[in-house]
Every structure is written in structure tokens, then in C-alpha cells.
Design a binder for these strands. Structure first.
Lengths: 109, 109
DNA sequence: ATTATTAATCGCAATATTACGATTAATAAT
DNA sequence: ATTATTAATCGTAATATTGCGATTAATAAT
């Protein structure tokens, strides 16, 4: 016990859960918002922007990258991060369809 | 350490993170989908629907309820769950604005 | 060559999550 | 009254996450 029983769910459910889990942390939400706001890619600016240690930021970036939501390219001594457009748009579509499926059905309770 | 440093984020970032974390589990995604699909409120059907123990389902329902995403009303010996419309629509709006802020900016990397 | 800067990784401690069996509390049926 | 049904809760074990200091690897600047 302790680990999620991924075998019993559909692939879509698992994928959506993984991506939502990646976003579901205030630090990572802040990172994504700043990435979008700045458009141009930033990197270690997050360390000063948020009040977290460099190791912690690096870990959060890694999780976002693992979920495929951002990408980073080495640029000399620093790393330039930005949104991964395809995964981002796919997630948007999947969430849209989830929310759309709850149109305006009248609740029973 | 081990706990999220909520103090350093905005209230919106924290709220969004809490609600996304509530959804970010395949079992809870399955529960929400089934709740929406059935429209009418189900309850312990989830135990047979998914392959999880009753205690586990009850815990997942509690988390969704704590996040304000669903509501449950006692109906005799069983409990009838359904989507909480206001929280659901608010979350939809917040996610929409997050995704909308990434319009079609051209990435730099 | 040496020194600074940047970011990844390792190792650790604290805390949170996932899952379940067992028990409990409450209503419904007999 | 007794028995079934339903769902919450407790306790526990396994695993995952969060956060950081310290170290490491790599390029840039001197």
C-alpha cells in the first residue's frame, strides 16, 4: 500500500492525474504563471522570485518537465525554460471536455 | 520540512493548488466522471465500479468534499453524492484564465 | 589555470498520501 | 429486538512529496 493502483484506471485518467498533480502545487503554479507572463524563458530567476532554495526550485522544474508541461534548453551556463506548447494545449482540451461534460444538468441533491 | 510553505504564495495560488490536488488522482477523476455521467447522485456504487475497498473510496470522497468539489446528502442508509456546482464552475473559470493567459505567444526555446 | 556562476543531483528529515482491514454508528428490514 | 446494509472513522503499513544543505558538473570570465 501507499502507491496508487494505476492498473485499474484508463490511460487517460492516469495521464490527466499525472499532469494535474504536476500543476497542483502553489510553487509550480507560480512558476507556470511567471513562465507565461514573461513569455521569454527565464531560469534561476525563480529562486529570487519565490522564496525557495535553489535545490527546491530545480526539483519543481524537474517535475514540470517530467510531466511534459515545460521544456528547458541549455544556454551557456544557465537553462532557459518555457511552456511546452503541445502538452499544454492537450491538457487544456482534456480539461475542457471534462468540464464541458458537466453542462447544466440539474443536480439531485 | 515536508510540508508546503503556503505562506509565501497568493491565496489564489493556494486555493487552485488545493482543488487541483483533489482532482489529481485517477480514482478521484473516475469518481468525478461517473458523478457527471450519472447526473443523478450515486454513492457506494463506486466501490464496485472501481476496484477499491470501501474505506479507500470513502476517503477519496472525503477529500473531494473537503476541497468543496462535491457534496453529499444522507438518504436513509446511503449517501447521495453530486458535483458542487459553484466550486466546479469557479474552478473551470480559474483554469480557463490560466490557459487563456498563454494565448499564442511564440516560445523562445 | 583559476575563479565565479548556474543548475542538477545526492542524502536526509519531516510530513503527506494511498490503501486496507477492522470497527463503529446509523438507518432499514425482518 | 435482532439482523442486514451502508458509509464513516481508526489504526497501521507502505510509499510519495516537500524542502534544504552540500556537493557536483559545466560553462563563462578573469
Amino acid at each position: 500500500m501507499g502507491a496508487t493502483k494505476s492498473e485499474i484506471y484508463t490511460e487517460e485518467q492516469n495521464r490527466l492525474a499525472v499532469q494535474l498533480k504536476a500543476i497542483a502545487h502553489p510553487a509550480r503554479i507560480a512558476i507556470l504563471q511567471e513562465l507565461i507572463r514573461a513569455n521569454a524563458c527565464i531560469c534561476g530567476d525563480f529562486v529570487t522570485e519565490l522564496g525557495l532554495a535553489q535545490a527546491t526550485i530545480s526539483q519543481h522544474l524537474k517535475e514540470l518537465k517530467n510531466a511534459g508541461l515545460i521544456q528547458g534548453t541549455i544556454e551557456g551556463v544557465s537553462v532557459c525554460y518555457c511552456i511546452e506548447p503541445n502538452a499544454w494545449k492537450l491538457l487544456q482540451r482534456e480539461l475542457n471536455s471534462l468540464f464541458a461534460s458537466y453542462a447544466d444538468k440539474n443536480n439531485c441533491c
